[in-house]
């Protein structure tokens, strides 16, 4: 058992995370080799590992990651740029909130990905389709959470602003948004998760562009280790995005 001082060190969570990952990897390998899990459905983790070099060399993984990352980046920025003001509008205008908030919540639950033929007709088989569909898919959580965060700002903070004769714009920028930031960030995280799933899913469905298309190709060739290897690169892109988000959040929200 780790000593208390080691368990509180910065290296401990990293080592624990890595060893958990490796442990799961080894456990799956053992289960597959002993036939507990079907090898024809799940490839051996060691084979997936060995496939990485092949898909990097033969499948233009860097270019595909760049395409997927670019679509994700544009979509993720767009959901913030559109979603936060929409949430602020719903907060500010109660009749609009009462009219639309339930619809926005319903949008979050709707399987929009099934509407891809419609978007193909409108935007063609292009990155625009991927981005537009992903933005619409990711918009609802950030709108809902922004509204919720602004509604939850403690009235005393608003009264401080009023007592200082702050304008509506000052109030929004200097009190409401900073106070609502933790809730807004939870909305951003949810939205980005939706966006990341949507980007790869739509690439897969319309067989276009980045990692989603690669997964589709490899699956159709029944290259299971390669398919799982490509999924690993999707996870890598997600990890990079969420690490960046963590950085931005800790910069915007110093320890409270």
């Amino acid at each position: 058992m780790a000593s208390p001082s080691f368990s509180q060190s910065r290296a401990f969570p990293i080592l624990l995370g890595a060893s958990t990952f490796i442990g799961a990897f080894v456990a799956l390998e053992v289960l597959l080799r002993y036939g507990v899990v079907n090898k024809y459905v799940v490839p051996l983790p060691s084979q997936v590992l060995m496939s990485l070099e092949r898909i990097v060399v033969e499948e233009n993984i860097v270019g595909r990651m760049r395409d997927t990352a670019w679509e994700m980046f544009v979509s993720c920025i767009a959901v913030i740029v559109l979603g936060v003001p929409m949430g602020a509008l719903l907060y500010r205008w109660q009749p609009l909130r009462r009219a639309l908030l339930d619809w926005v919540a319903a949008l979050a639950a709707a399987p929009l990905v099934l509407a891809f033929p419609l978007f193909l007709v409108i935007f063609g088989r292009s990155a625009t389709t991927v981005i537009v569909m992903s933005v619409i898919t990711g918009l609802a959580p950030i709108v809902i959470k922004t509204t919720e965060g602004l509604l939850g700002v403690r009235s005393v903070l608003i009264n401080v602003g009023r007592s200082l004769k702050m304008t509506d714009a000052q109030m929004l920028r200097m009190i409401l948004l900073p106070a609502a930031l933790p809730v807004i960030f939870s909305g951003i995280r949810l939205s980005w998760t939706f966006v990341l799933i949507s980007v790869v899913g739509i690439e897969f469905l319309i067989n276009l562009g980045g990692l989603g298309q690669l997964i589709n190709d490899l699956a159709e060739r029944y290259d299971l280790p390669g398919t799982y290897g490509a999924i690993g690169f999707v996870i890598l892109v997600s990890v990079i995005f969420f690490m960046l988000l963590e950085r931005v959040e800790s910069w915007l929200r110093p320890a409270r």
């Binding site: 005393v156 903070l157 009264n159 009023r162 007592s163 900073p178 106070a179 409270r256």
Partner: peptide, 26 residues
């Protein structure tokens, strides 16, 4: 609200995202 009146509230009203000096200088 009148500029001549400064209000101190019953509830905790510091801004948690600003440090002490930035709160006071607000």
């Amino acid at each position: 609200p009148h500029k001549a009146v400064g209000m101190v509230f019953q509830e905790e009203s510091t801004f948690p995202w600003r440090n002490v000096i930035d709160n006071v200088a607000f």
